[in-house]
Simulated assay, not measured.
Amino acid sequence: MEKIKIVFLGNSHISLAALEPLMKDQRFKIIAVFTTIDQKIGRNHSKLLPSPVALFAKKNHLNLIKTANINKDIDKLKDLDFDLLVTLSFGQILAPEVLKLAKLINLNIHASLLPKGRGANPIQQAILEGEKETGFSLMEMIEEMDAGDYFYQAKIKIADDDTYLKLEEKIANLIKLKITDLLIKYVDQKLTRTKQEQNKVSYWGKISPSLQIIDFNKSTIEIYNKIRALNPKPKAKFIFKNIEIFVLEAKYKLLKKEQIKEKIGTFLKIEKEGIFFQTIDGIIIFTKIIIPGKKAQYVSEIVNGKSIFKN
Score class of each variant (00 low, 15 high):
4 I>K: 09
6 I>G: 06
7 V>A: 02
8 F>P: 01
8 F>V: 03
10 G>F: 03
11 N>S: 08
11 N>E: 07
11 N>F: 11
11 N>A: 04
13 H>Q: 10
19 L>Y: 00
19 L>W: 00
19 L>D: 00
23 M>F: 11
25 D>I: 09
26 Q>D: 15
33 V>T: 03
33 V>L: 05
39 Q>L: 13
41 I>N: 09
41 I>F: 09
47 K>G: 15
49 L>W: 06
56 F>Q: 04
57 A>N: 09
57 A>R: 02
58 K>T: 06
59 K>M: 03
61 H>G: 00
63 N>A: 02
66 K>Q: 14
68 A>D: 07
74 I>G: 00
76 K>P: 00
77 L>F: 09
78 K>W: 07
78 K>C: 11
79 D>Q: 12
80 L>M: 05
80 L>W: 03
83 D>T: 05
85 L>N: 02
87 T>Q: 10
87 T>L: 15
91 G>A: 04
93 I>R: 10
95 A>I: 03
97 E>Q: 12
99 L>D: 02
102 A>P: 00
103 K>M: 10
108 N>Q: 08
115 P>K: 01
117 G>W: 06
118 R>F: 09
118 R>N: 07
121 N>S: 14
121 N>P: 14
126 A>S: 15
126 A>P: 14
128 L>G: 14
132 K>I: 14
132 K>F: 14
134 T>L: 10
134 T>D: 11
135 G>N: 04
135 G>C: 10
139 M>F: 13
142 I>R: 00
143 E>Q: 11
145 M>F: 11
146 D>M: 01
148 G>Y: 00
150 Y>Q: 02
151 F>R: 00
152 Y>G: 01
156 I>R: 04
158 I>A: 01
159 A>P: 02
159 A>F: 08
163 T>D: 13
172 A>T: 02
173 N>G: 13
175 I>F: 00
176 K>V: 04
178 K>N: 14
181 D>R: 03
182 L>K: 00
183 L>H: 05
186 Y>I: 03
186 Y>F: 14
186 Y>W: 06
190 K>T: 07
192 T>P: 11
192 T>N: 07
194 T>F: 09
194 T>M: 07
197 E>C: 05
203 Y>D: 05
204 W>C: 05
205 G>E: 07
206 K>T: 13
210 S>D: 13
213 I>P: 15
214 I>P: 04
221 I>G: 02
223 I>S: 10
223 I>Y: 11
225 N>Y: 06
226 K>S: 15
226 K>M: 12
230 L>G: 07
230 L>I: 06
233 K>T: 15
238 F>Y: 08
239 I>R: 04
241 K>T: 08
242 N>M: 06
244 E>W: 01
244 E>D: 07
245 I>E: 01
245 I>Q: 01
250 A>P: 10
256 K>N: 13
257 K>Q: 09
258 E>Y: 08
260 I>K: 12
262 E>N: 11
265 G>N: 08
268 L>P: 08
269 K>G: 02
272 K>T: 13
272 K>F: 12
279 T>W: 02
282 G>D: 02
283 I>M: 09
285 I>E: 00
286 F>S: 05
288 K>Y: 10
295 K>G: 12
300 S>Q: 12
300 S>D: 14
303 V>E: 13
305 G>Q: 07
307 S>F: 06
307 S>M: 04
